[in-house]
Amino acid sequence: MEVKKMKREKGYTRKNFLKGIVIENPLFVSILGTCPALATTKSIEAAIGMGLLFTIVLICSNMLVSLLRKLIPEEIRTPAYIVIIATFVTIVKMFTNAFLSELYSTLGVFISLIVVNCIVLGRAEAYASKNNVFDSLIDALGMGLGYMLALITMAFFRELLGLGGFTFGKIFQFIPLTTLQIIPKGYEIKMFQTPAGAFIVFGLILAVLAFIKNRKAELKANIEKREKIRKAQEAKEAALKAAVNNGGNK
């Protein structure tokens, strides 16, 4: 409960929202929810659809969990959260089947797999059970948006390289069918639409992020080293000057 007592310093909500997108991005940083990430990112539309459904479930479950956080006894937290998440997944599945049936058949089993998605259960246990409803809502929004952006990055590469271009309007039928063909028809690499391509794209993105992190760490280390050298020189010069003065006035 110490989170509540801490005086809410300014911008806590903004930081709480942004942490889900960059600092603690659920897919690329804490590597959670990888099953749907690899499977539903064949096209950007499917990724957006999956991201939206996931965010809705995460928001509803985070809010209900933080609403009941005082009532649910400590010992049976996880079963209660699993029931809550399963309920919201069933509701989302029904509404998708009714109103977005094309998205429902594209995602198939992976809507039901949100129940076992580690991010939803993890956020419920780690954050929602300790904070009030508003913070949990912001946290869920941040995490959901972060996850969706990660899915879209994966889908961007997989669809661009795999199909040579982006098609919109196939899943969300209310958009007129538009195809943006970048790589000419016969020259795309179909492998990126297969599971092997998903592994490669995910691995390369993680490698790039690791490279950036290492580079940043190296730069910081260099700066510190140079600092130390400069300080050592100043100390030496000061000592030299002091020695000259002593010599002078003997």
């Binding site: 649910i72 006894p73 209660a80 029931v83 399963a86 509701i91 029904m94 009714a98 109103f99």
Partner: peptide, 20 residues
């Protein structure tokens, strides 16, 4: 509490089923 959670979810699911 668990009974309350179970019944809340049952009601929510039944309602959305009727709607869809």
């Amino acid at each position: 509490t668990l009974g309350a959670i179970a019944s809340i979810s049952a009601v929510l699911i039944a309602l959305s089923n009727l709607a869809t």
